[in-house]
Simulated assay, not measured.
Amino acid sequence: MNPYLLLAMAIAAEVVATTALKASAGFSRLGPSLLVVAGYGAAFWLLGLVMHTVPVGVAYAIWSGAGIVLITLLAVVVYRQLPDLPALLGMGLIIAGVVVIQLWSDSGGH
């Protein structure tokens, strides 16, 4: 399977798990707590598969960068937590960094 598809799946699982972490209320609610454990388990398993072919630094940069942005977007929708301008600028820099790695770095896995 395409490692970048696996990476996208790992990112999705991590985003679901992290979003459910708040809903778990300190692991006092069973449903969200199970989602946290399953989501993180799937995310790390998939990330491990990705690292068979994609360099560790590249895989982790994409995984964490995309996760930060997607979790922030979900927090806006689900929890009504709006990021301020410095947070948005920082996320823009993270996205720019991932793009630079993918397009111009020799360690970009291409």
Score class of each variant (00 low, 15 high):
70 L>W: 05
104 W>Q: 13
76 V>D: 03
78 V>K: 15
102 Q>N: 12
96 A>T: 07
77 V>W: 14
88 L>E: 06
104 W>V: 02
72 T>E: 05
99 V>D: 01
80 R>T: 08
97 G>N: 05
92 G>Q: 04
99 V>G: 03
94 I>L: 03
77 V>N: 04
96 A>N: 04
103 L>M: 11
92 G>Y: 01
91 M>S: 08
104 W>N: 09
80 R>E: 11
70 L>N: 02
83 P>N: 08
75 A>K: 08
85 L>M: 06
69 V>G: 13
94 I>D: 01
70 L>V: 07
90 G>M: 02
96 A>D: 11
95 I>L: 12
98 V>S: 02
91 M>W: 00
96 A>W: 08
104 W>R: 09
85 L>K: 06
84 D>R: 00
73 L>M: 15
80 R>C: 07
93 L>A: 08
78 V>Q: 13
104 W>E: 13
93 L>D: 05
102 Q>Y: 00
76 V>F: 11
69 V>K: 06
86 P>I: 00
73 L>T: 12
84 D>F: 00
98 V>Y: 03
86 P>F: 00
95 I>C: 14
83 P>E: 07
82 L>W: 13
85 L>N: 07
84 D>E: 10
78 V>C: 12
70 L>K: 08
86 P>R: 00
80 R>Q: 13
89 L>W: 04
95 I>V: 15
88 L>Q: 07
84 D>C: 01
92 G>N: 00
76 V>N: 04
101 I>K: 03
79 Y>D: 11
92 G>R: 02
90 G>Q: 06
88 L>A: 09
71 I>V: 15
87 A>V: 09
75 A>Y: 02
79 Y>K: 07
75 A>V: 11
99 V>W: 03
94 I>T: 06
72 T>N: 10
78 V>P: 08
101 I>F: 06
103 L>K: 08
103 L>Q: 14
97 G>P: 11
69 V>L: 13
81 Q>R: 10
79 Y>S: 05
73 L>I: 15
75 A>F: 09
89 L>Q: 05
87 A>M: 14
70 L>Y: 06
75 A>N: 15
103 L>G: 05
83 P>S: 03
98 V>L: 05
89 L>P: 12
85 L>E: 10
70 L>R: 06
96 A>E: 07
69 V>N: 09
79 Y>P: 07
103 L>A: 13
104 W>P: 08
100 V>G: 08
100 V>H: 02
90 G>A: 06
104 W>D: 10
92 G>I: 01
75 A>S: 14
101 I>C: 01
75 A>E: 13
82 L>M: 13
70 L>A: 15
69 V>I: 07
99 V>A: 11
100 V>D: 11
72 T>C: 12
93 L>Y: 01
96 A>S: 14
90 G>I: 03
99 V>S: 03
86 P>E: 01
93 L>T: 09
73 L>E: 09
82 L>P: 05
87 A>G: 12
98 V>Q: 02
70 L>I: 12
76 V>L: 09
98 V>A: 02
104 W>I: 10
82 L>F: 12
101 I>V: 09
90 G>Y: 00
83 P>T: 00
84 D>H: 01
98 V>D: 07
100 V>R: 00
97 G>L: 03
100 V>L: 11
101 I>Q: 03
104 W>Y: 10
96 A>M: 03
90 G>V: 03
87 A>Y: 06
87 A>W: 05
76 V>K: 13
